[in-house]
Design a binder for these strands. Sequence first.
DNA 1: CGATCGGATTGCATCGTGGCAAGGCCGCGC
DNA 2: GCGCGGCCTTGCCACGATGCAATCCGATCG
Lengths: 330, 330
Amino acid sequence: MGRREDVARLAGVSARTVSNVVSGTVNVAAGTRERVLAAIEELDYRPSEIGRMLRSGRTGVAGLVVPDLDNPYFAELARKLIEAARGHGYTLMIEQTDGVRDRERELLARADTKAIFDGLIVSPLGLTDDDLSRSARTQRPVVLLGEEPHPGFDHVHIDNFVAAREAVEHLLGAGRRHVVAVGAQRTVRSSSSLRLSGFEAAMEAAPDATAQVAYVDTFTRRGGYDATRALLHDGPLPDALFCFSDLLALGALRALHDAGIAVPEQVAVVGFDDIEDGRYGHPSLTTISPDKEAIAQAAMDALVRRIGGDESEAVRVLAPHRLVERESTG
Amino acid sequence: MGRREDVARLAGVSARTVSNVVSGTVNVAAGTRERVLAAIEELDYRPSEIGRMLRSGRTGVAGLVVPDLDNPYFAELARKLIEAARGHGYTLMIEQTDGVRDRERELLARADTKAIFDGLIVSPLGLTDDDLSRSARTQRPVVLLGEEPHPGFDHVHIDNFVAAREAVEHLLGAGRRHVVAVGAQRTVRSSSSLRLSGFEAAMEAAPDATAQVAYVDTFTRRGGYDATRALLHDGPLPDALFCFSDLLALGALRALHDAGIAVPEQVAVVGFDDIEDGRYGHPSLTTISPDKEAIAQAAMDALVRRIGGDESEAVRVLAPHRLVERESTG
DNA sequence: CGATCGGATTGCATCGTGGCAAGGCCGCGC
DNA sequence: GCGCGGCCTTGCCACGATGCAATCCGATCG
């Protein structure tokens, strides 16, 4: 690949003129332009993105920090985010944290130091306000996804409380009277606390119904499987499960099937996330469907706005969700 | 964030000495180092990664081009690749092509021009040798994943032919006598042709068995669902399906269930990829499990070696696979 | 015919690093 | 007291690009 000097020499102009042709921001005589373009073609010259980055201070790269691409919710979200980023002329660098707080902190710190992003979209699990405000010193904007807002940061989310309540109301409305919330967590701070609150709110409005909470270790199929097994072993059979994620629900479905319990006849199941797997499984999964495209779009919009220098107060964007009824609730 | 000049002034040294302290490659007197480090802390100075990139010609970024992160196989592979990249001190930028040849070509071209990667890992679907060799002019190394090798490029793969043959032999060994290969494609050039060949080889070795090929439009659950529906509608019921991917298999399972056909009693099903979904579904899916970790590791190893300047002949790395027997084949 | 104007082209400076080699300083040995 | 060696420190430059302002040239106008 030729360098700009070589192109200039071949075209019989100065190096600066080559730049003018390439950037197109300055008037260049038609004849000159053609000679330069020919020389560029001839020598296979391509301007260096890194030089431009250095000069302009912009990289056109945004970081995405998610717990885990294995998780279909994040994989589907990442897909939409990559598309949204492309729409803004941005490329995404993806990092995984496995929900480990130290990894999340480390990546935030790297955003200050080694990294090259213009900004960062973070889906945190274990970060505290303190972790975040410590990193707020950075010049680089951060947009948060997920349940919890943090003061001073843009935040894109769905109304988890209302969504959870609607899911449970759907179960109650179908006549279910013993509903178990699957997905509370003892270890992790308050992830999903809004979903739990929504569950509780719906249950309190139905005094004749029994509410129960099942704890899980991880938001995985195995977590849902193990929790449901324990549930079936320990006590009376409920007639509905509200799982805090589709993965949990898929694990629960499997455990119910293994125990010979019919879904939805004996137990109805609702999930949360609307991942593709839930649509083709047997039975297909009723779930809360967050508008992932809206989330991705809003997050990139906010990030690009901040990168553009917007210093206004942090915004909270509410993306739509809807309840999708499928076979698992009849 | 302070600049190097400011740090130098505060520490009472030259800007160059600040660099020397930061890089650590040159001897600096202990007292000077401490003063500089204190000034760095005080002014919150952090060296610019972009400046380093420009100076060194390395970015520490690799590109990953996959069809689609929605596809759990690629999501799981991406996860492993990100981890492998981290092990080499690299970060990944992920791009999606949706298997569209023009997008793949465009991204290869961008690797030459706008992009900042040191190298690229590509999982192509529609690229021709010509497309690739056209891009081989670039200085940036490319490592290929997937079925098809291309001359002159490092290639990491599993033995698709043998894996497919083993999958079909497993079905035949269980007494199945009418096996349908689900996943041949009319439009896309030769994707999965090795899996088809493996299928044919196994079937030819069993003269008393009936082989059949079902075509799909896309390697998705819907593709598998539609193809299986058509299959059930059109002809006699086979007693085994060999699906070229787990997604196809999951769609097929759903279609079989809708038609009231028992799996594995009436029809056995084998998939390919061993994605997480297949493990918890009902029935769980027998599948060919490629060693994704080995693939990711080998791909990053090869890429980093090339980036390091290795000009030796292109290598082909064969990663292990194994047949995982689950409920869908009894 | 000279002055002015405007478009095309160019040189200079800068972004932040780090390699290179020259310069500075101290201490030791003679 | 002087010279020399060795360690620190520093200035200069290039990496590649572009904003800015100066320069250059042909053309038009008075």
